[in-house]
Design a protein around this nucleic acid. Sequence first.
DNA 1: TAGTTCACG
DNA 2: ACGTACGTGAACTAA
Length: 891
Amino acid sequence: MANQKLLLIDGNSVAFRAFYALYRQLENFRNPEGLHTNAIYTFKNMLDVLLNDVKPDHVLVAFDAGKTTFRNNMYADYKGGRQKTPGELSEQLPYIQELLHDLGISTYELENYEADDIIGTFSRIGEENGFDVTIVTGDKDLTQLATEKTTVMVTKSGVMNLEAYTPEHMKEVNGVTPTEFIDMKALMGDNSDNYPGVTKVGPKKASQLVQEYGSVENLYDHIDEMKQSKLKENLLNDKDKALLGKKLATIDCQTPVTIGIDDIKRKDIDYPKLRRFYEKMNFRKFLSELDPNAADSENQNDENEKVLMEYTELTKDNLAKVDAKEGDTIVFYLGMLGPNYHLADFVGFAFKIAGQIYVSRDVDLLKEENLQHLLEDEKIKKDVFDLKRTTVGLNRLGIHAHGIDYDMLLASYLINNENNSDDMAEVCRMYGNNSVRSDLDVYGKGKSEQIPEDDKVLFNHLATKAEAIESLKETLLAKLKEHEQDDLFASIEIPVARVLAKMEINGIKVLPDTLTQLQDEFAGELSKMEKEIYEEAGEEFNINSPKQLGHILFEKMGLKPIKKTKTGYSTSVDVLNQLKDENPIIEKILSYRQIAKIQSTYVNGLLDVIQKDGRVHTRYLQTLTATGRLSSVDPNLQNIPTRTEEGKQIRKAFVPSQPDGYIFSCDYSQIELRVLAQVSGDEQMQEAFRTGYDIHAHTAMRIFHLKSTDEVTPLMRRRAKAVNFGIVYGISDYGLSKNLNISRKQAKEFIDNYFEQYPQIKDYMDKAVKVAREKGYAETIMHRRRYLPDIHAKNFNVRSFAERTAINSPIQGSAADIIKIAMINMQQKLDEMHLKTKMVVQVHDELIFDVPKDELETIKKIVPEVMQSAVRLDIPLVADSGYGHNWFDAK
DNA sequence: TAGTTCACG
DNA sequence: ACGTACGTGAACTAA
């Protein structure tokens, strides 16, 4: 018979991980009493996985008892300086214990000892009683307990991802055995436990020493044999620290526990109590798991209680009841199936007017005179969830919405774009409203997506949405105000949403014939290249498969793999570029890839999305990016090729709606660097922009210490340009060296020179990071926020990333603010002047127009003017333009 | 559905 | 000593 299984869990450490795994959801996980529940929820999820995997007969969850332990007697500062447990977590700990008891799982804590020691003790007891032991923790310290019979599982990222430390795995990771790991820690110290170890000895050196000497004691016994070095000196100086470290690092496996192995056998689950617990915590998922049969009625009750709302179903006969007058504010919700509102089926709609809710599944009712009037009258204000979606949807019904001044989706995106969702249920939940069911729930997904047949279900759904838009409006507006974002909301995002709706509805004309021509050309080239590649390779294979390609290049042909990915060899461009000279096949693969990309993504991709009107209608996602930029989908019009000759051909298919008209394009010159010059206030760079220099040449002159820009060579300019870009991204010498293919040292020199020449930019970068640390977010010129919780991360990489983000976001985001303002002003100008020209595409720093022949001269004049005057900065904004009979010629 | 690659600013 | 440029979307393969 197989051994019995014992599962030991480090309660505090796992709760800690669980808490931070869902830290971003902290405020979404609250029970009705306001208690945070994210750690409890995640802990239970993880426990389920463990119980299922390990199938233990005995389980113990150990907790830390008090503040001080026997280790503090040896070293007063043990764990000193550690940030204290956040209140939002400590309030959850008692409930985790309660949950465990309801589940029939024992918990234990022992005065004067840490959870580690309890676990050590029970792993020993378990082994002695013939158990296979599994330990689960978020703390690597416990890996010293790994033996042939004991496996230590340590959380990697999040909670669900565990790394199993067996003695073999320890050897792989640290180069030492589990017991030797104690000596390793003694030498290197432990920052988080606040003991120092030996000066200048880190994990690598410590591991080496332990491998050589076996233990700290043995090392010092033989230290005289070591030849004189800084290391030896440090070891001698810090001998006390090393010996103390060893004591601190050693887990006590002989603690005087007052319970035995039989006491921690799993007991029966107390279902009634567990149910009450889940109810108290508002854990609907676990409740429905409890007994799936009862779940339906449970949910039903729940729903009835919360959602059964008063509403009137609208029909042709009672339409007259629905009425509002100028100055009134009403709520409107238009339901559509699926994300693409240009094509989606209508589901129904809801109004809330003067406390009354009206619903119907028949959207044609909206065309009835009084309803259409409600929606089109500018003076009757409408509150909605997703202005753009609603406007485009109504437009398909021939209704031209006006007077939508409030959009719940946009508001919640501005308040916090981090966990923003376009699912209304999720947005509501963030603000403590759980009444709205998610569309996924109500409509289903994929093949089984459908409109509920039951009127009650559908109407309740629509009604709760109308209700929630209204009931949360005050909260959201107050938040906007608190963030000083009322202006950003009302004067930028709402108006730009209206502009975007117009652009999407209009679409841009794409000629299928131009694309099919390209399709033939590319198909010919591709099959030719394919043959050549097969010949060189000596066999046929799928060139598009990185796996197969890697096999051919690096195994069959013996080229040296430069980079690896998670799954195998990397075959990306920069790898292949480095291998170019090795074999002629490389060049062919590169060209093949390039053409294949253009063929599948752009030629075929675009052909698939041309609508009946001969146009493509993209959707601009206004509530997605972290920085405030737009993104574009179905199709993405923001990444149409421009860098290669073949790619550019695609642009020839984008044409004006009238055969003799023009595509007019206007883009900001260096907008991000100009924003940087503005927000940093750097005199040198501002001066360069004011005098209209070529900014990259100017930078080259300065960082290479030249007298004039005449001395700048193309190489210098190229390098200076890369540095300018790097600065915007939050530069590092490594990144720059890789980008420019130069040494890291040289890259560092460029950067140092740069900061010397533009000192205020350096100040800006430091300040951006500092401010983000203090406030927890970065901000654009228009108060658009980006929260950066990772700025406090312990992990260097995670933190560094947040720091670069703190530098980049205000720059990228302010540039996004500026072009949004330009778009609003531009549309207003087009309207005022009654022009037929349409704004059709936005590509971050560029606007594209569909211009009738006779308006070209006007447009040439007003577009750059409007863009350049969007905001007033200390330096000029410059916009360059071009035009032609298609997008290709518009440059 | 995740991972890789590559198109854009 | 750490291991990196910032922001996106789509196609494809392979599980």
